[in-house]
């Protein structure tokens, strides 16, 4: 192998600067007060308004109707992120289990039906999905927020691939020991796929947390806003005012990106494994 040169590190450092720099500046700016930011521009040093800004963002009632707080939006984001991830895992594990282990006449048909959902991202089927949800009266509910997002095959394919790699001998051994299909699933397949579940959970949590278009259409009551959903309102209401509250806008942005970024960074190896193996 060759020696690494100084320029390699220089390019990487520059890359890190471009990628992380804006996040760093966003965080630092959120620790200053609004007037400071307005006069002096973006900040790169620690200010002394960290506690004040974040306290205000989390507890002050904002928005047009004035009944939504930052803390409420954080909670909604967690409900959407975790609800979506858990729902996705349960649904896709069961679907994959059915596809791999049960021979039925329609299994090929089901496989192709699930397969076609890959062709239709939510963005292109948004009008009909919205229509169905209105008819079911699920606008402004967490169910309406989460369920339509679950209809996609990515997770199913991931688990299908994994279940296929589980040796048949395990199934035979389990059957000899008298385990039914349900017991086999709970006692053997689920423990075997622990790492898979973790990897998928991380990816799906980030995906759910970061949803924007669907929450925007499904929720018009501000008490259901997620952080990501509220971003545009922040820009319109705060930055449009006399002395724009840049610091608070940045504080909300930081809150909106902190949980997914932390999860991705902490569980990096699982995340990369899940991403490179499932997103195909």
């Amino acid at each position: 192998m060759h020696k690494t040169t100084f320029s390699d590190h220089l390019i990487l450092l520059f890359g890190v600067f471009i990628m992380v720099g804006p996040i760093f500046v966003a965080f630092m700016t959120s620790t200053h007060d609004a007037i400071d930011v307005h006069m002096k521009g973006l900040q790169v040093a620690w200010g002394d308004d960290f506690v004040d800004t974040y306290k205000e963002v989390l507890t002050k009632k904002g928005g047009f109707t004035g009944d939504v707080t930052g803390a409420r939006m954080v909670m909604n984001s967690f409900i959407l992120g975790i609800g979506f991830a858990v729902g996705k895992i349960v649904l896709s594990m069961l679907a994959a289990y059915g596809l791999v282990y049960f021979r039925s006449r329609f299994s090929t048909l089901f496989f192709w039906m699930i397969f076609t959902t890959l062709l239709l991202p939510l963005e292109v089927r948004i009008l009909p999905s919205y229509d169905v949800m209105t008819k079911l009266g699920l606008v402004n509910t967490y169910t309406g927020l989460i369920v339509p997002l679950l209809a996609s095959a990515t997770g199913t394919f991931f688990f299908r691939q994994f279940f296929k790699s589980v040796p048949d001998e395990l199934l035979e051994a389990a059957r000899i020991d008298g385990a039914g299909p349900f017991k086999f699933f709970i006692d053997i397949l689920v423990p075997l796929s622990k790492t898979m579940i973790a990897a998928i959970f991380i990816i799906m949590f980030v995906y759910g947390w970061n949803q924007y278009l669907w929450p925007m259409i499904m929720t018009n009551e501000e008490s259901f806003y997620t952080l990501v959903r509220g971003i545009k309102q922040i820009l319109l209401v705060w930055v449009g005012s006399q002395i724009p509250e840049y610091n608070q806008a940045f504080a909300l942005a930081v809150l909106a990106m902190l949980p997914p970024v932390l999860i991705v960074v902490i569980f990096q190896s699982w995340f990369i494994k899940g991403l490179t193996e499932s997103d195909k």
């Binding site: 992380v20 970061n210 990501v228 971003i231 997914p260 970024v261 991705v264």
Partner: peptide, 13 residues
Amino acid sequence: TLLISVYAIAPPV
């Protein structure tokens, strides 16, 4: 670690 962290940021953010 530093380079992949931006992946988790939502497009509107």
